[in-house]
Amino acid sequence: MYAFDYVKAGSVSDAVAALGDEAQPISGGQTLIPTLKARLAMPSKLVDLTGIAELKSISVSGGVVKIGGAVTHGAVADSADVKGAIPALASLAGHIGDPAVRHRGTIGGSVANNDPSACYPSACLGLGATIHTSGGDIAADDFFQGMFATALGEGQIVTGVSFPVPEKAAYMKFVQPASRFALVGVFVSKGAGGVRVAVTGASESGVFRWSAAEQALAGNFSASAVPSAPSSDGMIGDLHGSPEYRAHLVSVMTKRAVAAC
């Protein structure tokens, strides 16, 4: 790790003001800290978001679950409000990493980082969430723009995520054997906005909506209606699975998610 300055922000505006040249926001640090330890990044300053009270609340009202950006996965998993409104979301959070990761890692960090194997982006996309940022609100459909790429502007931070409460939803994760990130994770929901099927882990373009499955399920929301595997073109191939295997798992996990709804 190289030397850096450290600022613990007390408010979103303080945090944004502190972000500038070579400064980087840090929330749970579950990606950033290992990167720093490996000397793969050299920020001049870390702006810690975890002390900002307004980023640490969970609320449910008007059919929307709103989670602050600095809320940990563990807090989401344990939240009676989230479990009551969108149990699939609480369950997703409760199966990220291990207890140590869940008690540091935050939803804002995960969404802003947009790791192609992370779980949360599929929930955002699969529920049609709104991403709140210091620069304004962005629909999930517009927010995720490929591996580690988002619509978040320079010097902006994710302040929270609002999830519309669906009629039903489920998340099925097929874990990569070593990291237990999603080799393929599928978040399926059925609600006022129709059927959504969001896939993480599989594509070289990051999290995506599987529109063929959404269309098929819109008419017949049952596992048997899920199409066979999508094309393996553009799927990730690595030590843990070929593009064909991932494409196959997209279909299998979608079926299982629909069955679990």
Binding site: P177, A178, S179, F181, L239, H240
Partner: peptide, 11 residues
């Protein structure tokens, strides 16, 4: 080494 950490070496 492609499996140089526990991210890819499956303990």
């Amino acid at each position: 080494l492609l499996t140089g950490s526990f991210m890819d070496y499956a303990m």
